[in-house]
Design a protein around this nucleic acid. Structure first.
Lengths: 340, 340
DNA sequence: ACCGCAATTCAAAACGTTTTGAAAAACGAA
DNA sequence: TTCGTTTTTCAAAACGTTTTGAATTGCGGT
């Protein structure tokens, strides 16, 4: 815990010179710089971030808020990126402060953390339409990056997948296989990504001359996929193909098909979006799932890089990464069954 | 972002008085105190932790390190307590800084965070025998609390379950049911809790006149439970009962029993320890699992309380909570099968 | 020796808070 | 009033750093 003062005392220099020597300012002599550097190393000097922050206004710390349910549990997908992101930020020498959003006002945890006067910026995830957090942070000029797409052309740094394309790609594949009646079992309506997926679904269905009236929304739970699929399959014009929000939902759909005595892919085709979570691996399904694949983990390093860039002054418009998911065809999709 | 100076200017008071009024010092007049409080509220004043830390040496921030595997994934159990802990700390107005341990020197991430000069203490979890992190932090007098038991009588604050009792309770139950050959499929050898479980297992087995030679160790994976159970069941004196490290391991054991045509509990009994993770619920097993149950989540509030107490000066010896898991008997245990 | 200019170095202020030691105000008793 | 106490308030220092503006040094040219 050596301080600048200690180093300067040891060398008979002023604190100013020591500070400048260590920070690579040009006006310090080569000889002094080396002496200072050597003593700093020997004493194991590390600048005190607290003091640094107090004077520069920058702390090298950023915040992230995890939204939790009343039972304190959080979405699995959050943790999927949390560790990777922390590691990626650490590579930039940035630390991460975690806080929770216990429901209620979504802006409050951000405000609370900001009031500490301790953070340089935030990483947000799972945007909703017209996200109030975005409005709050933008109004105060607090830097942040968003994980997940909000609108087509957001005015803040963002890394996410093209959710419109996710659905339309899936629908196109199924249409090419001859399916006429395709259902979408989507994620929760509040999420911006869900809205984009619905739009992509409708756009692609319309483009292929299909109707798009079988759209369901809700939590991305196995149970949810199961009940919606059962319900849809019991209708008078049951779908021959399902597009699922996640592999977990697809698991429910497969179960529903099985319970109704339908074979996959002979009677029913299933496509899911795959975040590549370690628990529900699409390849281990029976049959292996056809998916649009975009590993959440891939977002970590880019998000960290973007935030650091943004803190360094790079404008938002240069930090927009909307990537496309891969369409990976496996055993859960096949030609539409012959009409009876 | 109101500061003390702003408040004092607004009221025509000195910064000193404002600071004291807000911190409840006795020497400030009742009338002034109320005026100050009112203005502080109106201006949304929050003390700047950075500045506070600089002068007091206390920041109201604590650190927690998550150990990740090379693929950046972390143990599920970590996240199970992370959010609850963050919320519990927030109730004490304490923020949490997260960092990762990417393998290698286990002490390094702690050192790095400490060198920032930013933290008041740490929360540790998953102790190993003679944990180097403990040695490091104790040597430097850095406050911390441990989640999980290390030794019988640690000299630091700890919250954990009695792992010795966990195994011995399970063995006692099985012995009372007449089982003579009991296997333990334990967690990874490195963990201190695993060592305690083995000791409890051996102690109870010995006490009941049973041998304790069927002990296996490894990662708490379903696959691991499956292969070890298959292996043990193929031996010449196969076990009639299994004690499992986790419900996930038990899932593997149940699968192995099924694959060998053995019925549970008629032919084989299974007991597992249940951390009450939301994903693998013991009650949803078929048959429902007999468990020693101790929800990880129960640790959050006590750990937060203990850390705050410890930071406040309460000595370690007054902060030791070793609780007992509940033994919950369900359908996966039954009388030992008749010897042929 | 003196000047001018560049190259170095320095003292002091600033960030927002807590704490120390002293000063001012209020009040009751003489 | 005048003194002594108690209550209330204040100015200044401190924490460790960066930054500003000024001072010092070195050196080549006259």
């Amino acid at each position: 815990m050596a301080t600048l003062k200690e180093i300067s005392a040891e060398l008979g220099l002023s604190v100013t010179t020591v500070s400048r020597a260590l920070n690579g300012f040009p006006e310090v002599g080569q000889a002094t710089r080396e002496r200072v550097q050597e003593t700093a190393d020997r004493l194991g000097y590390r600048p005190n971030r607290i003091a640094q922050r107090l004077v520069t206004g920058r702390s090298g710390m950023v915040g992230m808020i995890v939204k939790i349910k009343p039972d304190m549990s959080a979405d699995q997908t959050f943790f999927e990126i949390l560790t990777g992101l922390t590691a990626a930020l650490a590579a930039h020498d940035v630390d991460l402060v975690l806080a929770v959003d216990q429901g209620g006002d979504p802006v409050q945890p951000y405000r609370k953390l900001l009031e500490r006067g301790i953070l340089d910026g935030f990483i947000l995830n799972a945007p909703v339409s017209d996200d109030p957090r975005v409005a709050y942070l933008r109004a105060r000029n607090i830097p942040f990056v968003m994980h997940g797409q909000d609108r087509a052309d957001p005015d803040y740094p963002v890394y996410g997948i093209d959710n419109h394309a996710v659905s339309s790609d899936a629908v196109r594949l199924l249409a090419q296989l001859g399916h006429k009646r395709i259902a979408l079992i989507n994620g929760d309506k509040g999420g911006a990504h869900a809205a984009d997926r619905v739009q992509g679904f409708i756009a692609a269905a319309t483009a292929h001359g299909l109707s798009a009236d079988m759209v369901r929304s809700g939590a991305t739970l196995e149970r949810h996929g199961y009940t919606h699929a059962l319900d849809l399959l019991a209708g008078e014009a049951p779908p021959t193909a399902f597009v699922c929000a996640t592999t977990l939902v697809a698991a429910g759909v497969l179960k529903a098909a099985k319970d109704r005595g339908l074979r996959v892919p002979d009677d029913v085709s299933v496509v899911a979006h795959d975040d590549a979570l370690p628990l529900m691996r699409a390849i281990n399904f029976d049959p292996a799932l056809t998916v649009t694949r975009a590993p959440l983990r891939d977002a970590c390093a880019p998000l960290a890089d973007m935030l650091v860039e943004h803190l360094g002054g790079t404008p938002a418009r240069d930090l927009q990464n909307i990537i496309n998911a891969e369409l990976i065809v496996r055993g859960s999709t096949g030609p539409a069954p012959k009409e009876d």
